[in-house]
Amino acid sequence: MPNVQEMARLIRQDIITMLAAAKSGHPGGSLSAADIIAVLYFSEMKIDPQDPNWPERDRFVLSKGHAAPVLYAALAERGYFPKEELLKLRKTGHFLQGHPDMKKVPGVDMSTGSLGQGFSAAAGMALAGKIDNKAYRVYCLLGDGEVGEGIVWEAAMAAAHYKLDNLLVILDYNGLQIDGPVQEVMNSEPLADKWRAFGWNVMEVDGHDIDELTASLQAARNTTGKPTIIIAKTVKGKGVSFMENQVGWHGNAPSKEQAEAALAELKGGNNNV
């Protein structure tokens, strides 16, 4: 398996390249999740790109579906489909939809895009695993703005109620949503306390630290009787200096020039990326 950090760097480049080609889409929340996704797809999950629907596979649900580019990049880098397809993101007649579509994209386990719903479905998949006594695990990436959706808390309650310890949620805590900082738009703090109160095993990590992410995922495997959430502190736009912590890069694609600058930076060996 390739170096996870190196894969995260490639995934970030893919994100910039495909968004520039698409001329629309969401760079900020894709870049913030790149390290998390790299760990999942290149170290953590039991998956088989040759057999995307392998019944025993681990599942991944991108509940924050607008970060589709980070998922598509990981799937392409992992060999689910040719990398050239990334350049056809959001184009008429091509399969990479603006938000993940399980019926069109090999490796996508749930169609998402309407916030909160993916998490609920991920919990349903985990329940199916419990019913059938299967060993697979279900991973789900939530956004921090996304927890404003009521269904997130309905699903959180139900996942704890049904003791879904085969469910692992990572919260991409980048602190920004479309209209501004999460705490100003609709304060969700104290976030960790909320999840604990809902009956979850809660861990807080640096979402750009591969080792910390890997270790917390390992620890989550040893937690039984309750689901785990890893609150991963991230930087929106991470890796591209002019995008970092900028609300404006939530849902705007880079121009050709901006993409070139971003790629130069990402390829340039910045050790923090």
């Binding site: 749930m110 609920s120 479905a121 349903g124 998949m125 199916a128």
Partner: peptide, 10 residues
Amino acid sequence: GFAAGLAAAG
């Protein structure tokens, strides 16, 4: 949502 996940898992 749960029903969708259950269906996705067969």
